[in-house]
Design a protein around this nucleic acid. Structure first.
Length: 243
DNA sequence: GTGAATGTTAACAG
DNA sequence: CCTGTTAACATTCA
């Protein structure tokens, strides 16, 4: 159940398969598994929550969605959606979504939209945000074309850290506050990465799943917000709502 | 046992 | 056609 940083950890964990040849591929994904036979993994990339395992003339995209999981060199009880087996070792994905593509990832993915990518571009994000000024900021943060990799945890934590209420209309947020939000979103995403790596992600939550605001001790509210209808955790006292 | 959850998209209704 | 709602996917945990 991943957001962008968790997919970075996945990528790191399977780097050792780069350059390795697939001897067998199987699973219940509705794809042609024969395309993998004897193919060497050329590169492993990520775009937000997408994991891309790239070969010479195609790639396979794994998206874990809400319930996906994986095992490296071991198996779960259940059938894998995709199992890639090497002469030494194997990589198994469960649930989620698996798709093949013959396109060039550079052609179809905008790396500057991926919050975890070095090429993520705050100026472009601002520009895209200006085009959706009547939308709630809680929805914009989940917009994968602007903040690819941001999920519901990063959304609530970034808004809390930037002291912005999730139900702010994008157009009502002053430029300075918006720039702070973008900085906090990126910063928290990378903190998420390190805290998750150390197994201390939950320990650092300030708003997400919390009952009491760590800043003012008033209640943290839990509410389904925006057109995405995802829950947001926020403090009405500490997070500004611009009118 | 029940319900909700770190997500997305296709199908459907109006 | 556009917009909004619902279902589906399939797993884990409180």
């Amino acid at each position: 159940m991943p957001e962008g940083p968790s997919i970075i950890l996945l990528k790191e964990a399977i780097q050792s398969f780069k350059g390795k040849k697939i001897v067998k591929a199987e699973g219940y994904a509705k794809i042609d598994f024969s395309v993998f036979s004897n193919k060497k993994i050329k590169e492993i990339k990520t775009w937000g929550k997408h994991l891309l395992i790239c070969f010479d003339d195609f790639f396979v995209r794994v998206h874990l969605l809400m319930f996906g999981s994986y095992r490296i060199n071991e198996r779960k009880e259940t059938n894998p959606k995709l199992s890639l087996q090497f002469s030494k070792g194997e990589l198994n994905f469960y649930a989620g979504e698996v798709k093949l593509s013959k396109e060039d990832p550079d052609e179809i993915y905008d790396w500057s939209a991926d919050i975890m990518n070095d090429h993520w571009d705050a100026k472009k994000a601002i520009k895209k945000l200006e085009e959706q000024s009547s939308q709630f900021i809680c929805d914009s943060l989940l917009d994968q074309q602007i903040f690819s990799g941001v999920g519901n945890i990063i959304k609530s934590e970034a808004l809390f850290r930037a002291k912005l209420h999730p139900k702010n209309k994008v157009g009502k947020i002053p430029p300075k506050a918006m720039r702070l939000l973008l900085r906090e979103t990126k910063k928290y995403s990378f903190d998420f990465l390190e805290w998750k790596r150390e197994g201390k992600l939950k320990k650092h939550w300030l708003a997400y799943s919390k009952k009491v605001c760590p800043r003012c001790d008033l209640p943290i509210h839990k509410e389904i917000t925006g057109k995405a209808k995802r829950r947001s955790f926020f403090c009405n006292n500490c997070q500004v709502l611009f009118k």
